[in-house]
Design a protein around this nucleic acid. Structure first.
Length: 475
RNA sequence: GCUCCGAUAGUGUAGUCAGGCCAAUCAUUCCGGCCUUUCGAGCCGAAGACUCGGGUUCGAAUCCCGAUCGGAGCACCA
């Protein structure tokens, strides 16, 4: 993107708050805010909430966006709600009508399309500004039904690109807006091209980055800018982003699936919402890095979450305490073992953060996955505890054969983890499945934190009461 | 149908505007090795790309034309 070194920028992220931010919105938040950080200037979040019907805003989502922006270290300098500025849009609409650059059209949708496709002006195109103004007043006053009338911007009805011929600027929607302070105050609502054009100018936008699906939108908006004598911001576009592991999602589809119980809520670990990533323990810095590395190409891309996880690992590896988590536990009794000892493995392999003290009696749990790999007579190392020889599988019995770490190296013993009988039940939810297992009691101190369950994965401890639930972050 | 846009390793990405310093950058992934009382990390090594065809030029990933493939718009959605 073309920004001169000394220039201050004003950029925005303009979502429709009809659901929570997803990984897709994140790109808009991170990239725009990053430019502002880099060049100095202002970052604005503008809610394009001018469709009370088809993409009806969710009241809670306004705050969700702002929270998620802050979480991503992209606190907006200013928050704007398009639905607050309807009068402004009306003002400019009126001006354009007076200039004979806009007209009220009474064609039915398909009817107008026919005119447009054959490059013919529709019968309403040549109505005088005075009558148009009149009809416009009636529109605003609610004298027409939905779909009966629409305000169009005059462009060039013969333009080679059909997408640019006399586009709609306002339509009638009688569904009240979800915001109580707006509600049924307006029945005429602007369409994106108009609303965005006016707002971008009013807010002094210098640069715009948006999806390439809006490329034609820009060309339409330029008509408005030309008519009003304004200068259009510099623009760049990016292509569609598809996540390998998650596929494509639409906010409205997710909303429906939540209602139908396919997903638990907006933070379901299967979903690409920011809330879901946060619950899983993905760190904002990692997301920023991931998005910035992706750049702003116009090519459609299909990215793998592996890169995001790799970035996240760099962030959480030094801070995540280590614990033993035994999924699908199987009890093993120990013969000839020392009674009631306390071992104290380090909380972290290279950061000095103390130890976790585990009391061990005459039996322990191990993973059934590990059990499947061993047979009678095998010697295994119980990590940070001692070495045992497997005496029997059914029931599972191990005999204590010493503590020596050297032995395991010489004999290339398998090293497995374990859990004492006083462990606590922990459920781990991953995008694909749910694990049930037992963890050291120390996990009770880790509410809200990301830990590493050794030989399993990084997880974020989400709840302690009434049961312990952790979300799977990644390997 | 009409219009617009894009194409560099498995996946992203730098380089393309101002042609030579690009036998092409970085990250991730995969594979091998070292280290490590888990996993991961770390370290070392390896593999892997300029969509195709013409043209301009002493010289093209870079400029031009065409083809192919992919995407988007033509909504009273954003």
């Amino acid at each position: 993107m073309d920004v001169s070194e000394t220039e201050k920028v004003v950029m925005r992220f303009a979502p429709n708050p009809n659901g929570p931010p997803t990984l897709g919105s994140t790109r808009g938040i991170v990239v725009n805010s990053e430019y502002v950080k880099r060049y100095g200037g202002k970052f604005i979040i503008r809610f394009d909430d001018t469709d009370p019907q088809t993409k009806r805003p969710m009241l809670e989502a306004y705050d969700w966006y702002i929270q998620d922006c802050e979480w991503l270290d992209a606190k907006p300098d200013r928050v704007v709600l398009a639905s607050d500025n309807i009068e402004t849009y009306y003002k400019y609409a009126e001006q354009l009508i007076e200039m004979d650059k806009a007209y009220v059209c009474f064609c039915e949708g398909s009817e107008f399309k026919q005119y447009k496709d054959s490059k013919e002006p529709c019968p309403h195109r040549d109505i005088s500004p005075e009558s148009n103004l009149d009809n416009w007043e009636k529109m605003i006053d609610g004298e027409y039904d939905e779909k009966e009338a629409v305000l169009r911007i005059k462009t060039d009805i013969q333009h080679p690109d059909p997408a640019l011929r006399d586009f709609g600027a306002f339509r009638i929607v009688k569904t009240p807006h979800p915001r109580p302070e707006i509600s049924d105050r307006y029945v005429v609502w602007p369409l994106l091209d108009f609303e965005g054009a006016i707002e971008d100018h009013e807010l002094g936008m210098t640069h715009i980055i948006r999806g390439k699906d809006l490329m034609d939108s820009e060309k339409r908006q330029k008509y408005i800018y030309d008519y009003l004598g304004w200068e259009y911001p510099k623009t760049t576009h990016w292509g569609r982003i598809k996540i390998h592991e998650l596929g494509s999602f639409s906010t409205s589809q997710i909303r429906k699936d939540i209602e139908d119980g396919v997903y638990e809520d907006w933070a379901d670990p299967k979903l690409p919402t920011l809330r879901a990533f946060r619950r899983r323990g993905i760190q904002p810095e990692a997301i920023r890095k991931f998005m910035i590395d992706m750049g702003v190409g116009e090519t459609d891309i299909s990215v793998s979450l592996d890169s995001l996880y790799a970035e996240n690992r760099k962030v959480i590896d030094p801070i995540a305490n280590r614990y033993f988590y035994v999924w699908d536990p199987v009890e093993m009794s120990i013969e000839d073992g020392p009674d009631d000892i306390i071992v104290n493995p380090a909380l972290h392999p290279f950061e000095k953060r103390g130890t976790r003290d585990i009391q061990v009696g005459s039996s322990i749990y191990i993973c059934s996955d590990d059990l499947n790999l061993i047979k009678i007579g095998d010697k295994v190392r119980l990590k940070d505890l001692y070495n045992v020889e497997i005496m029997s599988i059914e029931p599972l019995v191990g005999r204590y054969i010493g503590d020596s770490v050297d032995d395991i190296k010489k004999q290339k013993m398998r090293i497995i983890h374990w859990c004492s009988l006083n462990g606590v039940d922990v459920t781990v939810r991953s995008p694909d499945k749910e694990f049930k297992g037992i963890c050291e009691p120390g996990i009770l101190n880790e509410l809200g934190k990301v830990v590493q369950f050794e030989r399993f994965a990084f997880c974020r401890v989400d709840t302690i009461e009434p049961e312990i639930i952790a979300y799977y972050t990644h390997k």
